[in-house]
Each structure stands twice: as C-alpha cells, then as structure tokens.
Design a binder for these strands. Structure first.
Lengths: 219, 219
DNA sequence: TCCGCATTCAAATGAACGTTTGACGACAGG
DNA sequence: CCTGTCGTCAAACGTTCATTTGAATGCGGA
C-alpha cells in the first residue's frame, strides 16, 4: 500500500516539461506586470504552482530565466517583423514605400497587443526589458542591431534623397513611439482625453501611428 | 585637547543643510545612472560622504527621498515648459503654431540634456521615473495631467479641424519621442549608424524632432 | 556656564532575497 | 530486482537590504 503523500501520481513525462513551461509563463506575466526587480523567485514559483528550487534547477538562476524569456520573445518579434518587411519588399518589386516599411515595424507588436491576445503580455515584457533589463539584455540590445539595419536600409531605399543620419534619427523617433505603448502611458492618455482614446482599437491605433510617422518621414 | 576623531570641526550650520543637499545630489545621480532598485541607501550615503542613517533622518525613508527628488524635478520641468508655452502664446497673439507649441514641449528637456549641463542627470532621472517609479510616482503621473492639458488645448487651437482624440494620440506619440531619449537608446542608435548620429548636437536634435513631429501633426 | 535642540554616528535589528542542499520518488535499462 | 538518472520537495544558508536605536556631538540662547 503506497498511497502515501503523493496526491495524484500521474505520469512524470507530463510534469517533466510542464514545470519548466509553467515557470516561463508565470515569470513572463509577473515580470511584465510588476517589473523585474519587484518580482521574486518565490512569487514566480508560487504563481506557477511549482517548487522554489525549480527555477534554479531548470534555468540556473533568476537572471538566466529572465534572459531566456527575453531571448525567445525578441527573436519571435524580430522574425515576424523581418517576415513582414520581406513580404512588402516582394510585393513592391524590391522598393516598398515608407508606409509599408513602417507597417512591418509597427504592426507585429500592435497586433500582439490586442486584448485577449496570447502575446499581449510578451510585448509588455519586451518593452520593460528595454529600460529595466539586466546587463546581459542591455548588451544584446546595444550591439545586436542587425534587424534594425534591414529597416534602415529599406527606408534609405524608399527615400534616397534623405541623408542617412536623418533616416537613423527618424527611425529612432519611430521606435520611441512604439516603446511608449505601456499600460501606464495609456492610463495617462485616457485620463488626459477623459476616455476619448480607446487603446483597444488596435487597427485604429496602427493607422494613427502610420499616419504620424509616415508624414514625419516624408517631411 | 579635543582633537579627537572629528577631522575638521567646521561650523555645524554648513553641515546642517549640506548633508541634505549632498544626499539629494548623490541620490539623483545614482538613481539616474543605475536605476532605482539597483541603488541602495548605503550606496547613496557612501557617494554623498554622509552617515547611513541620514537618509531616514532627513527624508523619512528611501522611497520618500525618491519622491522628493521626483517632485522637485518634474515641477521644474513643467514650470519651464509652461513658461515657454506662455511666451509663445503671447508672441503669436494667443494662437501659436504647432511648431512653437511642440518646441515648448521638446526644448526644456533637450536643453537640460546638453553635455556638461547641470540638469543632464535630472532628465535621465525623470525618464527613469516613468517606467521604474514607485507607486506614488505612478499615481502622480497618471492623475496629474494639468500641464499636458495646456499643450493639448493649444494644439487643438492650432489645428481646430483635427478631432480631439487625434490631438491626444499625436501628443502621446510626441511624448514617446522624448521618453526614448535615454542613454541606452542613444548607444543603440550610435551602433546602428556607426557613429553618424551625434547626440551632443542638441540644437540639431531639437530641429530633427520638430521637423518630424510637426509633419506628423500637419498630416 | 549650562541646557536644549538638531544632527551625526556606529551598531544592531529583522525581514526578504537568491541560491544550495540532501533526502525522496518515479521511471528506464539491463 | 537492482541501479543510475532526472526532477521535485522542504528546509536551510549566507547575504543584503531599509530602518531603528541610543549615545555622542556641537551649537545658540539663557
């Protein structure tokens, strides 16, 4: 009779991968909502319903867990953006217009941010990583700019009369527009507009951002 | 013979206010450079050359010290922006153009950010407060939008044919352009442009930002 | 001269943190 | 049936943190 402490035996193959996945989901969520430093390993394991030591067992350390999530999400985002830019390039025979280039830059994070979307929290995580990330993350963000180079090159092709440094600066402004799409900033905007601005209208927001940024690039 | 531990007696009236001021300066600097959570009270008091307990004695708590710096700096910034907007309003007989309104919004933080400027570090502090601030700071940022209302109203006056929500959203985009001016983002931009972008050219950056944002508002 | 007050100081306190440990259970292969 | 491996678990470790304490200090006013 071995009906001991174990409540439900189940097969271990399920828990094997399950624990790691639950930690990833819980950690991404908590970090995105509360900031990196305001979440402890205890919070994560409690939310995930796993043991405290499992973070260090599966990921080595809290920082390594953070970096793993960061690496996965930025890779996905960059891949999706590159895919859209590639499609736009094909569609326009090698020289897509400014608006389509910017769409490839803006749309993926906006689409992921629609309410009830799986990746809504991932976008918040990525944005947060930009200002609160560990040294390893900042190193990657600072030096790995290959994905941005594709966009800069495409923009120079669309506006060949523009000086390269103008393109770089305006791309920088566009990125600022995206990175400002945090919950707290939306809250302030809603307070200011007394509810007239609806964050939930993702397609409308994309159009507004494209109108604004496209005009800035054609100035 | 009282030449005891005290190295130089000096007058206490100097140290009285000096300690508090030294803590404020050191704290603002460390917080701006390293982030709020990565700086301990021990770091601050060590940098300031004062005793560990002086933070809690003069400010009550670490968070209260943070909020005090935040309150001082945001007040200064809002006052300076309001002053420039007021002057522009007078200069144009009550209806300043978009570019002058945006100049009042952009120029103060940019001017303060010029190399070797006293307030260069204050701007970084304010920007950091926006994403890493305590709950008290976020509450103020979310609810106190009176200074932004002045700019929104002025912009509606300059572009009366624009729907109010369009003005609010575009103002939101402009704020994103400013908030993206952090050291780390400049580093990335420099890497991308291979040194072609010079952050030190403040007037040039202001012109670029105004060109971009004005075009976005006139779209 | 003495006292009251504001400030500084070294030391200690208790809580929270990331990480480590060693025992324990479940499974697969021989 | 034994054995090694992998994952989980509760407990504990050592460190760091913000904050508190109480004595010591120096000055202005009586």
């Amino acid at each position: 009779m071995s009906d001991s402490a174990s409540p439900v035996p189940e097969v271990d193959a399920e828990r094997e991968a399950a624990t790691k996945a639950q930690v990833l989901v819980a950690a991404e969520r908590l970090f995105a909502l509360n900031g990196f430093q305001n979440v402890s390993v205890r919070d994560i394991t409690a939310e995930a319903g796993v043991n405290l030591a499992s973070v260090n067992y599966h990921f080595g350390s809290k920082d390594a867990l953070l970096f793993e999530i960061f690496r996965r999400r930025t890779s996905e985002l960059n891949r999706e953006r590159a895919r859209m830019l590639h499609e736009a390039t094909d569609r326009y025979g090698g020289k897509p217009p400014v608006r389509e280039i910017l769409r490839a830059l803006f749309e993926p994070p906006l689409r992921w941010s629609t309410p009830n979307h799986d990746r809504r929290i991932s976008v918040q995580f990525i944005i947060r990583a930009r200002s609160e990330g560990t040294e390893a993350m900042r190193e990657v963000l600072r030096t790995d700019v290959s994905h941005l180079r594709r966009f800069a090159d495409a923009l120079m092709g669309a506006r060949p009369e523009l000086a390269p440094e103008d393109v770089y600066w305006r791309l920088h402004f566009c990125l600022g527009m995206i990175h400002n799409n945090r919950f707290a900033e939306f809250d302030r905007l809603h307070t200011l507009s007394d509810g007239a601005t609806r964050e939930s209208d993702t397609q409308g927001l994309l159009s507004r951002m494209l109108d604004f940024a496209e005009a800035g690039f054609l100035a």
